Every structure is written in C-alpha cells, then in structure tokens.
Computed example of a mutant assay.
Amino acid sequence: MLASTLILIALLCAGVFIRVPYSEMSPGPTVNTLDDHDGEPVLQISGHKSYPASGHLNMTTVRVTSAEYNMNLVEAVYGWLAGDRLVVPHQAIYPEGQTEEQSNQENAEEFSQSQESAKVAALRELHIPVKSRVVVASVIKDGAAEGRLHAGDVIRSVDGTAVKQPDDVAKLVTRHKPGQDVVFTVVPAKDQAAAEKAGKTATSTRNVRITTRKAEDDARAVVGIQAGTDHTYPFSVDIKLADVGGPSAGLMFSLGLVDKLTPGNLTGGAFVAGTGTIDDSGKVGRIGGIEMKTIGARDKGAKYFLTPQGNCAAAEKNVPAGLTLVKVNTIHDALKALGDIRGGKTADLPTCAGN
C-alpha cells in the first residue's frame, strides 16, 4: 500500500511538471443580440424605423487558453475526462507558432468582417438595397503598390476589365508575368468618402500603372494589395460588442437585425441561441468549438440552438440535455425555423438528429 501510494504521488508530481503541446477550450459568455451589453444596445439602428424586440437570440463564444500557456499532463488528462471542456492540439488554435497578439488581431479582423456581412445579409433578406463595391482593403508594406494605391480606393477595373468581386482582382493581375505592368482604374478613397458624404455617386477615376513582382511563395505576379468589399447602407447600423473576436457571431447578429427591423418578435419569447459565420448572400458557415458553445448556451437557459449544417455531426456527439439542435444552412433557413418555434410547430424543425 505504501509503495503504491508513493508511486502514485510520484506520477502525479511528474504529471505536474511534464508539459504537453495542448490547449484547452471551454464555454465562454453568451450575449443576447436583442439586449444591452455593458450599458448600451448590442444592435443600434438610426435613420430607419425599428421595433422593440423581446426574447433571446444569443450569440455564443468559446474561451481558449493563451498562446503562452504551457499545459501540464495532469491538466490535459483532467480536460480529456471533463465533460465541459475540450483539449486540442496547441496548433489547432495557434497555428505555426502564432502569437496571442497575432491571433487577437486576426480574430478582430474576422469579427469586423462578420459584422459587415451580417448587416448586408439581414438587409438583403428584407429586400433593403445595399450598394457594394470592390476596394483596396490593405496595402502590403514595401510592396509594388505602396504609395500608388491606398486602403479604401475603389477598384473599378484592372487592365480595362471591370471587377465585380475581390477575387477578380487577383485573377486579372496573375494573368501577367512578374515585371509586367498592370493598370488599375480606381476612385481614390478621399473622393469616394466625399461623394458618400454628399449623397452622390463618385465619378472621378484615375489610372494607376504598377509593375508586378514575383510572389514570395511561387511564380505568380503580384502587386502587394488585398482586395475586399465595402458597402454603403441606406441608414446607420452599428454593432457594439467589445472583447469578442472571430467570425462565428455573424448569423446571430443578422437575425437580431431582422428582428429589430420588423414588427413582432422572431422567437415568440423563446430562448434561442446559436452560432455560424455568414456571408453577404446569407449563407451560413461552420465554426470551431461547437461542443463548448452548446454547453454555454444551455447553461444560460437556451432551449434551441441554431447550428450550421457543417457542425451538426460534431454537435450531436454531446448534446446538453434539454437543448434542441436546429440545422441551418442560410439565414432564410434560420428565419423559417424561428417561425416554426414561434408558431409552436417544433415537430417541423430541421434538427441535427435528422442530419
């Protein structure tokens, strides 16, 4: 008995000092997009009629250990055995030695983009027109375009070919060989901003000739910019939520906006939570940490959880008791499901169990 006890103590001590390359995920806070957070409404609309909304449309989050955190073997084993946390390889959260600062920056950018896509998807679902344009999202330092193009410049065409999507820019540039010239026709950012302020359409353009360079990782021709999409909304829509990152709140933001822009309550007073990325067309994408998000939602009182179709298989492995996983693939799917919940037609819900 003494020998066994001493061996156990030795193993436990060794486990404390043995570091393993893992990180931990656990349920994070959930926030009702229809309510206030830190003293101000999460969704703020001005310049257009809006309506009071009750019930819950909660976005969900996941907590993760920091990039510098060195998990020991005992903590890893405890996490594997516990039902309310998830132990994953460190690189699954911080790929290729990514620092926490770099991860936070990436998450902040994704969160900002998800807000814009949520606005566009919600307004288009309500047939409210949103003007879109391809812009220079960023200019790479020391790249060929530095000083020639600027963030916010509207890209009308490349070599005379009109661009409609950000991907069009790269396709047109890579038709060239490194060292060849490419001509961008752009509306300068300051002219675009002035036109918007005056409520007009910018018409002044200029041609910018840039000599392409060879990409660092292959033989492609590049100019050193990242193209993106910018939007003009017919009224002001702001999403106020600090200390949250990543793209996974997009679906719930868009549903919250639809609820506030239409009379009545989408949920009929039910507690609905969910997750999922969303693009400008309203398509819902899969996210990470689904098992932790369902736990966090149920702990807060959620009865229904809007689940991206691509996450159904993982979510179904450990569904918290009393929580119904509702499968969605688009914002339209989510709105139809909310109509069923609101009308008491829960037997008609497309659940993950039937995936």
Rank of each mutant, 00 (worst) to 15 (best):
Q226A: 12
K197G: 01
M71A: 03
G269V: 09
A194F: 01
V74C: 03
L73Y: 12
A67N: 11
D36H: 14
A302C: 09
R209H: 07
G289Q: 09
S248M: 06
D340H: 15
M1C: 01
H231C: 01
G343M: 08
N355S: 11
P263G: 07
L241V: 08
C13R: 13
V272T: 05
T262R: 15
K131Y: 08
S117A: 15
V187C: 03
K260W: 00
T203C: 02
L338Q: 09
E75L: 07
F111E: 10
N32F: 12
V120C: 00
I287N: 05
L12Y: 11
A198Q: 15
T346S: 05
V16E: 14
A302T: 11
S138T: 12
K197W: 04
D142W: 09
V62Y: 00
V183M: 07
A67M: 06
V182F: 03
A162C: 00
A108C: 04
G288L: 01
L123V: 08
R133W: 09
M252C: 12
D279T: 06
D259E: 08
N355T: 13
G268I: 06
V169N: 04
L123Y: 06
D159Q: 06
G179C: 03
G354N: 14
A82C: 03
H127R: 13
V74K: 03
A151E: 13
G47N: 09
P166W: 05
K164A: 10
D35H: 14
V208Y: 06
G143H: 07
L335G: 06
A14I: 14
V163T: 09
P29A: 04
Q91S: 15
G301S: 13
V134T: 11
T203I: 10
I210S: 08
S114N: 08
G83Q: 05
D35T: 09
V258N: 02
L323M: 13
L266M: 09
L11Q: 02
